[in-house]
Amino acid sequence: MPISINESNLKQGVLGLVMALVEIIRDVLRTQALTRLEDGSLDEEEEERLGDALWELDKAIEEIKCEHGIDEAVRAVRDGLDEIVDSVVERILNPEKWSSARGEL
């Protein structure tokens, strides 16, 4: 499934793609932070610092998206990626379906 980037507005497209990637990295960092929080490997000061940094990152991302009006573009890229991941997972979970679909091609 191709990720469609609006060609008539390349800046939006590229910026949308970049911000989508930044968001995904943010999500990974956040997940990692929560894992660390739960297994108790952070002391209070570290916890505060980490949370603060993530909060700042959130704010910055929202500001940039708002400033350039790329909310839609970012969502489109992420939806596209989600669909790709979904179909990959689907193929892994249902190999028979995948091979029969390939047979039809």
Binding site: A33, E48, L54
Partner: peptide, 14 residues
């Protein structure tokens, strides 16, 4: 406090 509140909120959402 602010930083840990953020983390708690994320944890809560999850």
């Amino acid at each position: 406090s602010k930083g840990s509140a953020y983390l708690i909120r994320q944890k809560l959402d999850k």
